[in-house]
């Protein structure tokens, strides 16, 4: 066993003291085969991570540049907010889903939630009330619910991953229905969406009761 005179410690399987970095045996270069650790690659580059980083940085810089131009020319940040929300949407829905290799069910849930936020922003910011909450959001949820139902039925009610987006859209449509019932006259699109979502959940209970209960327990940690 070699001894590091500087640290007064015995050194195993190395010609250098790992604590002070000094050479402990200059004459006999030890056979590195005895090492119990592999020789690591200098840097392990994860391509997807670097792409994710580049896209994140590009998004941030894109927003900063947009805001700067907007401020410089119009003295406001009016149109650059569209760019900000658009990029945030792209980031959380498209880039994130690809980077994290999310399942189709999770992607559908993300689309439902983030597109709703984007539409709400556009509706509030442009002060063009009605089109988003009354039509765009309910029809989006309806389309996503039907997609989930098709995917579930196509696999003989086996693909229970789709339970998550279906349940999310049922809860969200119930909330929006409650809201529109008090504030708007046009609530038939959300009523239709809510009943489609609810009937899908009911079908799940009718045909796959145990699995549906188990899925609810799983999602809500009951």
């Amino acid at each position: 066993m070699k001894v590091c005179k500087n640290c007064n410690l015995q050194i195993k399987n190395s010609n250098y003291c790992p604590l002070c970095g000094k050479c402990v045996d200059e004459q006999a270069k030890e056979n590195q085969e005895e090492r119990s650790f592999p020789v690591y690659a200098p840097t392990l580059i994860d391509n997807s991570e670097s792409v994710w980083r580049i896209l994140s940085k590009l998004s941030i810089w894109g927003i900063i540049v947009c805001m700067a131009i907007n401020l410089f020319i119009n003295k406001t940040i009016s149109w650059s907010l569209y760019a900000l929300f658009g990029l945030l949407y792209l980031h959380f829905v498209v880039f994130y889903s690809v980077y994290k290799k999310l399942s189709f069910a999770n992607v559908i849930t993300r689309i439902a939630v983030y597109t709703t936020f984007l539409i709400l922003f556009l509706e509030l910011y442009t002060q063009s009330w009605g089109w988003g909450m009354c039509y765009a959001i309910p029809f989006l949820w309806l389309a996503l619910t039907i997609t989930s139902a098709i995917l579930m039925i196509a696999k003989g009610w086996v693909n229970f991953e789709m339970f998550k987006p279906t349940l999310t859209m049922t809860v969200m449509s119930a909330i929006l229905l409650g809201f529109l019932f008090g504030f708007s006259e046009t609530f038939w699109p959300i009523l239709v969406t809510f009943f489609v979502c609810l009937s899908l959940v009911c079908f799940m209970f009718m045909f796959r009761f145990k699995r549906t209960v188990r899925s609810i327990q799983k999602e809500f940690r009951l």
Binding site: I11, K12, S14, L19, C20, S36
Partner: peptide, 21 residues
């Protein structure tokens, strides 16, 4: 780490060091 092991060594405890670096 050096201080930790050196203190132990100065108290009469024999230490054998190994590292992945």
């Amino acid at each position: 780490m050096k201080d930790f092991f050196s203190t132990l060594s100065s108290l009469g405890i024999d230490i054998i060091i190994e590292s992945n670096f």
